[in-house]
Nucleic acid binder design. Structure first.
Length: 228
DNA sequence: TTTTGATCATAT
DNA sequence: ATATGATCAAAA
């Protein structure tokens, strides 16, 4: 037996999306799950993307989607971000997979990172593990786009990291590189491998990586929102 | 306590 | 294996 939840259709425009997001603010995960007849996992250990999917469903994002923005017709990407009681991020934010091959001619202007971060609807969520998942609440949404200064720094980080990838130094990249963007593993486990460029230009197999936004970037971004 | 590297589920 | 959604947890 399965339920027949009433799923929201994609929002017609930006105002409708924001209205829906603001309507979710203050609600508990239990309440949102109940509205869709979804079971609540005991914790996020084996359901790390559960909250993100829950909000996607409520906002009418294309579930199980392709490599695109969540609301492609609006040019908006949805990101849930776990925060503590002070509103500070508890985790970094995954942006997209880092391309390790086929990068000749790729520029910041055409990069997936720039596209994904062009417009982001940030939705803070309570992430304190001391709060039962069902009791955690959704915060107030923030529709953001990078300022010229922000984009410039993101671009510098991206270019530094992509240079290392293209020059066959992917295995020398650590999470310490980049001011706001970092590259870290993004894989099922440490045995998963993907093709990359070795230090002598030869093909090598290495751990898949992803671009992430550091907390030192998202923290102030959210703080401006809540202090205003 | 914070950060970095590792990992989990699902769909294609 | 790659894409989506991320958080976990060992190490610093």
């Amino acid at each position: 037996m399965h339920s027949s939840p009433l799923l929201p259709s994609p929002p017609e425009n930006e105002a409708e999306l924001l209205q829906r997001a603001q309507r979710l603010a203050g609600q508990t995960f239990a309440a949102l799950a109940a509205q869709l007849n979804l079971p609540i996992p005991p914790n996020l250990k084996r359901d790390k993307g559960w909250v993100g999917m829950l909000l996607e469903l409520h906002l009418g994002a294309s579930a199980g989607s392709k490599a695109e923005q969540d609301f492609a017709h609006l040019g908006i990407e949805l990101k849930t971000i776990p925060v503590d009681a002070q509103g500070k991020p508890l985790e970094t934010t995954f942006v997209c997979v880092a391309p390790l091959t086929g990068n000749s001619g790729v520029t910041w202007e055409t990069s997936h990172v720039r596209h994904k971060l062009a417009r982001v609807l940030w939705i803070p969520i309570e992430g304190d593990r001391g709060i039962p998942l069902a009791d955690r609440r959704v915060g107030s949404p923030l529709l953001w786009h990078p300022s010229e200064e922000e984009e410039q720094q993101l671009r510098e980080d991206w270019e530094e990291l992509m240079d290392m990838i293209v020059l066959g130094q992917v295995e020398r990249i650590t999470a310490r590189h980049g001011a706001w963007l970092q590259i870290r593993p993004k894989a099922a486990n440490s045995k998963a491998l993907t093709e990359a460029i070795g230090q002598h230009g030869e093909p090598i197999m290495t751990l898949p990586r992803g671009f992430y936004l550091k907390k030192s970037f998202t923290g102030p971004l959210l703080a401006r929102h809540f202090l205003m």
